[in-house]
Computed example of a mutant assay.
Amino acid sequence: MAGVYIGIDIGATFLRAGLFTGDGRLVRKIKREFPREGFSEALKSLVIDIAGGRVDSVVAVGVGSIGPLDLLRGSVVNTPNAPIKNFEIARPIRELGLKVILANDAAASAWGEYVLGLGRGFDNILYITISTGLGGGVIVDGNLLVGKDGNAHEIGHIVVDYSSRVRCGCGGIGHWEGIASGANIPRSFAEYVKERGLCGDIGSWLCEELSAGRYPKPEDIFKHYYIGDPVASKYIDDYLMVINAAGIASAINVYDPEILILGGSVALNNREVFIRGIGRYLDKYLTVRRPKIVFTGFEDNVGIYGAAALAIRTPSTLAKYAEIWNKNG
């Protein structure tokens, strides 16, 4: 197969890769756990395998990665949620003789929506992912925002609760990601329940878990919410959705998008909860006109579509970095 593109989504939990045609059609995909060691070799193996061993047929590789990024070096530095905190991306791919384009994962997803998805026809787009981590990607007047190091859209580190004592993976306190991301919901749930004395004599499995010194997983908290657990209901309806609405509104107020696209496993797996929560609280915090709000149509493939879009139609704001990464071939 000639003239194909690869999109790689580097998350905190999984590495995903997709093989795409030049018009953005997904041919096949691979999903692997984030390696505990040897990231460069794991990345090269992923590229070779998704190409079916035919790297000579690949035009370019787009990568959307968790941050923070160092775009000049083509690497990730001190990422809070992954097993490996610092790793190179551009160099291993260039060692395969392939052109590489790199962006923050949520920024790549925003670009994928702009080029191939629900963002087509809009020049001002905000993409927010609520998954293991929490981040955003922004397009203003048709331009993908990048920043000096590639981190212009780290909206997960907006402070949304000054009273919270839950520490984000980055070290900060009260951050949106530190409270509402999949990696941190268990701790923010435990803090919320403890400070408000919600368990008491309530017969809740979630309280039993906390009493045993175990943090319930996010999926367990939502599961018990759906079956009417009063502790889960109090946390999600009266706190978690307030936090999410405040964070979303803050990003909307800053970037003034025409459309907000939501993705990430926490949001996608609990759409009705988010629709109700956003509907209930968002307007309390907005100062600009509310944008159209939708969930990504790419589902959990949004990251690889976004990464592929970087390679198929490279944003002008990444051109100078692409020249640096690919200068030797």
Rank of each mutant, 00 (worst) to 15 (best):
G172P: 12
L19K: 02
I236D: 06
Y192F: 12
G52M: 07
A251E: 03
V55F: 14
E209A: 14
S65E: 01
G247A: 01
I312Y: 14
S65N: 02
E113K: 01
N301F: 12
N151T: 04
D283E: 12
F39N: 04
I185L: 05
N81A: 13
E41P: 06
G264A: 02
V146T: 06
E37S: 12
V63F: 05
G24V: 02
C170V: 06
I173R: 05
H157L: 07
S40R: 06
L43W: 10
W111K: 00
D161I: 00
K148T: 13
G22T: 04
S163R: 14
L71A: 01
V146I: 11
A107W: 14
A245N: 13
E177P: 15
E95Q: 15
T317L: 10
T287C: 09
R313I: 08
P80N: 08
G3R: 08
Y215N: 11
E191W: 14
S45I: 02
G137M: 04
V294T: 06
V59K: 04
I10S: 02
G74C: 05
F39V: 04
G178T: 00
F122Y: 13
G11N: 07
E209H: 10
K31E: 14
Y239W: 12
Y321H: 04
W205C: 11
A246F: 15
L268S: 04
S233Y: 15
Y162L: 08
I158C: 15
R32L: 12
H153R: 06
I312C: 09
S250E: 09
I259D: 11
I130E: 06
D123Y: 04
G62C: 03
D56M: 10
I221Y: 08
R196G: 04
V138I: 07
K99T: 05
V242D: 05
Y281Q: 01
P291G: 14
G178K: 00
F34W: 08
I139M: 03
E208K: 11
G174D: 07
G329M: 12
R214E: 08
E41Q: 12
N104E: 13
L310V: 02
I243Q: 13
E195H: 13
R187V: 07
A180E: 11
N328W: 04
I128M: 13
V27S: 10
E299Q: 15
W176E: 08
A2E: 08
V166H: 06
Y225M: 00
L26A: 14
F39Q: 02
I275P: 04
F14C: 13
D105A: 00
D9S: 10
S204L: 13
L134A: 00
A180D: 04
E272M: 14
K194H: 09
I227N: 15
I66G: 01
L98K: 01
L69W: 03
V140Q: 15
G22Q: 03
Y285Q: 15
N104Q: 07
K223R: 11
N326S: 10
L102D: 00
L310I: 14
W325N: 02
R280H: 12
I50V: 14
A17I: 01
A103K: 02
S75H: 06
